[in-house]
């Protein structure tokens, strides 16, 4: 059996991680979901949110459909953003330590941003 990897790469043990396909699938799944959701979001901004004040936005968000769609939009959008940025960091950050730090920071940052956004939506949607 011929070994195709170089001796150096065998010593380093950096082979395939045997995983990663799920990111490819999740990127496409979230992309498909975001086609209608992103269009809905832009239409909502243009037709309902843009012209009104704070009370108008609250009323818009307190209708159940809008709250649910906005939660879905945030979840898929931030998931898609996470996968895309992770791909960019993996491609362009070559220093192994910096790569690990940037990938871990990205994960925490996206989670914090997602929870903060969802928390804000729930506060408005469920608040009096």
């Amino acid at each position: 059996m011929t070994q195709l990897s170089t001796p150096l790469s065998r010593v380093r043990g950096w082979g395939s991680a045997k995983e990663g396909t799920h990111y490819f699938i999740a990127q496409r799944l979230s992309a498909i979901a975001l086609i209608p959701l992103a269009l809905w979001f832009v239409v909502s901004i243009v037709f309902f949110i843009n012209k009104g004040d704070h009370a108008n936005l609250i009323a818009w968000l307190q209708s159940p459909w809008n709250a649910e769609l906005l939660v879905l939009f945030i979840v898929f959008l931030f998931w898609h953003t996470y996968i895309g940025l992770q791909e960019i960091f993996q491609d362009y950050v070559h220093h192994e330590v910096l790569k690990a730090i940037s990938l871990i920071s990205l994960k925490f940052f996206v989670i914090i941003l997602t929870v903060a956004s969802l928390w804000a939506i729930l506060r408005i949607a469920l608040g009096g």
């Binding site: 009370a55 968000l61 945030i74 959008l77 895309g84 940025l85 960019i88 941003l113 956004s117 804000a120």
Partner: peptide, 25 residues
């Protein structure tokens, strides 16, 4: 890829805008 990276910055503003709306008028 460039537009995707640029749009990622927008998610921060989107989150800020939602939090600002939840905090009050």
């Amino acid at each position: 890829r460039a537009t995707g990276a640029f749009l990622s910055l927008g998610t921060i503003v989107l989150a800020y805008w939602l939090i600002a709306a939840a905090n009050g008028v």
